[in-house]
């Protein structure tokens, strides 16, 4: 019977993964909220272009994205030269590098649900708020966001869970360094390569159960929200 307790290395990987997903989610929302709002309201052609760009990680193989990020952020890449000249240093193989990669990779999972729910907020609601002398920011915080609760929740859960499960990009850009860039999915890969299947099953099981619970919770919450009257959600 193999020893099935989690090793320091596993705990490190779990903590690192949780930290990565949390930081990434914060940044995703900081970028995603204004971006999704603009995409939901704009009629310009630029909007379609940006929408398509945001969706690219959905169809691009993770290793491809990881490889290009590695080259772009590396010492010979334009972004790498920029970060070095700014005194930040090089991003690949560091935690901030993982955050940058995960943010790009999970962006569509946050922007798309936000955009859909922002688009569903009726123009009339915004006009009513404006006649009540609410400024644009005020309207956004007190009218749009509360009306978009299901979208916000979906975006948060999908963004977080997707970062947890990411493998190809973080392996390429992070370099599988224990305690620094070795996240849970990579720890599982290492266990498989080391023939420690019982351990790999244990870690993979944790990830599976956690992801499933998160998605299940999302279903329940969405159902609870959708029973509130449609008018309050701004549906036409």
């Amino acid at each position: 019977m193999p020893d099935l307790s989690l090793a320091t290395e596993d705990w490190q990987a779990i903590a690192l993964t949780a930290r990565l997903a949390a930081v990434t989610l914060l940044i995703l929302f900081a970028i995603g909220l204004p971006l999704a709002w603009w995409l939901a309201r704009t009629h310009s052609r630029l909007g379609s272009l940006v929408s398509a760009l945001v969706a690219v990680p959905l169809v691009l193989p993770p290793t491809v994205l990881g490889f290009y990020l590695l080259v772009l952020l590396g010492p010979q890449g334009p972004v790498g030269r920029l970060t070095e000249s700014l005194g930040i240093g090089l991003l690949p193989f560091t935690f901030p590098g993982l955050v940058v990669a995960s943010t790009l990779f999970s962006l569509p999972f946050v922007v798309q649900p936000l955009q859909a729910s922002f688009a569903a907020v009726s123009e009339r609601m915004l006009e009513v708020a404006a006649t009540l002398r609410a400024g644009p920011l005020d309207t956004f915080w007190h009218v749009v966001l509360p009306l978009s609760r299901p979208g916000l929740l979906s975006a948060a859960v999908l963004g977080f869970a997707h970062t947890l499960g990411e493998f190809g990009v973080v392996l390429m850009i992070g370099g599988n360094i224990p305690g620094r860039t070795q996240v849970l999915s990579i720890a599982i890969y290492n266990r498989v390569e080391a023939f420690e299947y019982a351990h790999a099953h244990l870690l993979a099981g944790c990830l599976l159960v956690f992801s499933f619970i998160a998605l299940l919770a999302l279903q329940f919450i969405n159902r609870a929200v959708s029973t509130t009257p449609a008018m309050l959600r701004g549906g036409a």
Partner: peptide, 15 residues
């Protein structure tokens, strides 16, 4: 840090 030799090579070339 484990990886395929090709991937490690790409990473070493990129710092």
């Amino acid at each position: 840090a484990f990886g395929s030799t090709g991937k490690l090579y790409a990473q070493i070339r990129n710092g």
